[in-house]
Nucleic acid binder design. Sequence first.
DNA 1: TTATCTGCAAAAGGTTTGCAACTGA
DNA 2: TCAGTTGCAAACCTTTTGCAGATAA
Lengths: 137, 137
Amino acid sequence: MEKRDIVHLLHQQNFRLTREREALLDLLMRTEKMHTAAEWHALAQREHVRVGLTTVYRLLEVLTKVGLATPFLVDGSVYYAFCSGQHHHHFVCLHCHRVEDLYECPVFQHLPEGCEVRHHKVDLFGICPACHAADAP
Amino acid sequence: MEKRDIVHLLHQQNFRLTREREALLDLLMRTEKMHTAAEWHALAQREHVRVGLTTVYRLLEVLTKVGLATPFLVDGSVYYAFCSGQHHHHFVCLHCHRVEDLYECPVFQHLPEGCEVRHHKVDLFGICPACHAADAP
DNA sequence: TTATCTGCAAAAGGTTTGCAACTGA
DNA sequence: TCAGTTGCAAACCTTTTGCAGATAA
């Protein structure tokens, strides 16, 4: 999804693109990893983007609401990754926390009779090539 | 998984089956829904099982560790469901929070080159037959 | 112009920890 | 016997909220 589409999507739902949100959004869009709210905040600060932790939480909430971010519960912590609005699944590296999007959807069979699936998540956890190369556990 | 197998599994890892744990385990085993720690605690109390909330947290931690419980992040809260140790996926009813185990594993294709999958989750969210019948949203 | 957003500080909520007493194996 | 467990209270962390000032649109 292009940045202008994202801005359009946010505007459609009465969300504003402030200086703070734009900087955070840029950071999220070019970071292919999941991070906790606190980590995103720290990453922003490292780039001299001045935003409060509260603002980070609020943007993550907005993005999750419009389908541009996904929360993962890993080892008791909540991580967020930016993702295209399109429906897809994930491959999450347990070592570096990189998140790969999978656009091919597995086929579901053998559902309990009568279950209506509203949405589903397929999350794969493992070790990505880069970590393998770096001799990760 | 039979109860005695569960007990065996816990003993193997130096966990003890106390009166409190056994009562909680019985509750978990016969409840086909996911609940938050606080909810499990309340359910136990309703059955006059006297356990502290701390003990509930500690048992959920132990069960998760040995693969007998799964945490779900739904709407910002962490829910736990009991599950057999065997690898499987879930169908989670968004309305009544019932959790159905799916033992058929979807086929994964189109993984990013070189990714090593350590474990994966396929979680389906929707409305179960019972809720449908009760005219759920 | 005004509804939305921001940062701060405080509050809230959920989870973990320390500890003394207890208990399963 | 003694390593593991319990409940309580306190500590801890993460997340949310209230509010006054700032700012997109």
